[in-house]
Simulated assay, not measured.
Amino acid sequence: MQGICLLGATGSIGQSTLDIIAQHPDKFSLISASANESVAKMAEICHRFKPQRVVMGTEKARDELALLCVDLPTSFEWGSDALDSIASDSAVDQVMAAIMGFAGLKPTLAGIRAGKRTLLANKESLVTAGKLFMDEVTRHNVVLLPIDSEHNAIYQSLPQTSQGAHKKDISKILLTASGAPFRTWSLDEMSSVTPEQACKHPNWSMGQKISIDSATLMNKGLELIEACWLFDVTPNDVEVVVHPESIIHSMVSYRDGSVIAQMGNPDMKIPIAYGMTWPDRIETQVDPLNLVDVTRLNFEAPDLTRFPNLQLAADAWFAGGSAMAALNAANEVAVDAFLKRKISFLDIARFNEKVLSSTNVVAIDVIEDVFEADAQARSLAQKYISDGSVS
């Protein structure tokens, strides 16, 4: 029986994780869970899974949740210190790090420092603090399993020894991208995109932030950086391939000419279950892939003119230091502004580029450096957006 700490229980990854736990009550137990302010959803989770501890993002949300669950033996807490505590709790075996955005970094690190098997669905942790993060993984001898479908596919397509192993045999990592809803749209057409349109991903059901990032290809840029840290490569070793069907989740090309791919229907329960049970596999109730029904798989190169965020991510990686944290922070601010209809869809990449080019890149030596870089970039992005200064 594996005790699970689910950071980000009410999001799409969290819900799929709960599905796996429910399917296999003999293998998994929900020890703890967190959410920001989704009180009603968390109340349902508490009554169904009866976790020992739950952490909410605000005191108000904690109090409201406690009133809805007075009949349960669950302990209700709130705040960042409580998040760190549940991730490092001795009753926990695995931490599913599914809090979206920069907020997921600190509790994920807390779980790693406590030696917990870490299922990483929070790419921003690696984007903003990649070297520090991976150093902690090594220092504490932690099993780190990527949950993003693409990185999970790469992991499955590599020799199953350790991350970064057998690099001499690898020619390229082929990171697939769906192209999202605007793959065929012109710049003129994208200039009037609404938040509602941008959130309608053709293949995946996801939250607003990650849906917008997918539509701008920033999500793929963040995944590019994540892949570099996870597999000890550079952006020059990673080729992004647009694959609209999302059937092949990523591939590894080897120097002998072989290409090994992981395929499956687009359902996050597959990589989640793989991470939770690695090196074994379990039933997920996901329909098996029927290639006859698929009939055709398409591939194309990404258009960096229409989707410049992908190039910005590579630029940030090569700039090193605080550049990646700055880009991530700028993007979070810009996406929020777009969702609030303060800026246009195309302005997201423009503000990201402006913040990145204005950032004084410094070395990241300790975790406090990451938080400082994040704060400075957010302040700069907010100023540019308030001023309407995008050129």
Rank of each mutant, 00 (worst) to 15 (best):
G3T: 03
G3F: 00
L6R: 09
L6D: 07
H24P: 13
H24M: 11
K27G: 07
K27I: 08
F28S: 07
S29R: 15
L30I: 01
A33S: 09
N36F: 09
E37T: 13
M42Y: 09
M42A: 07
A43M: 03
R48Y: 01
R53L: 10
R53W: 02
V54A: 07
K60L: 13
R62H: 12
A66M: 13
L67G: 05
A103T: 02
G104F: 00
L105M: 06
P107T: 02
G115Q: 05
G115K: 06
G115F: 04
S125C: 06
K131S: 14
V137Y: 00
T138R: 10
R139P: 12
R139C: 15
H140K: 12
N141A: 12
D148E: 04
G164R: 11
A165K: 09
A165H: 08
A165G: 12
K167A: 14
D169W: 10
L175H: 14
A177H: 10
T184D: 15
W185M: 10
S191H: 14
V193L: 07
P202D: 02
W204F: 09
S205V: 11
D213Q: 10
T216Y: 12
G221W: 03
L230A: 03
V233D: 09
E245M: 10
I248R: 08
Y254V: 04
Y254T: 11
A261E: 11
P266W: 00
D267K: 06
M268F: 02
K269E: 08
I270C: 08
A273C: 12
P279N: 07
R281C: 13
T284A: 10
Q285G: 04
N290W: 04
R296A: 15
D303C: 14
F307K: 11
P308T: 05
P308C: 04
Q311N: 12
W317M: 12
S322Y: 03
A326L: 06
N331V: 10
A334K: 09
F338P: 14
K340G: 09
R341G: 04
K342L: 12
S344N: 06
F345V: 06
A349S: 13
L356M: 07
F371T: 15
A377I: 04
R378Y: 01
A381H: 01
K383W: 04
Y384P: 05
G388D: 06
S389R: 15
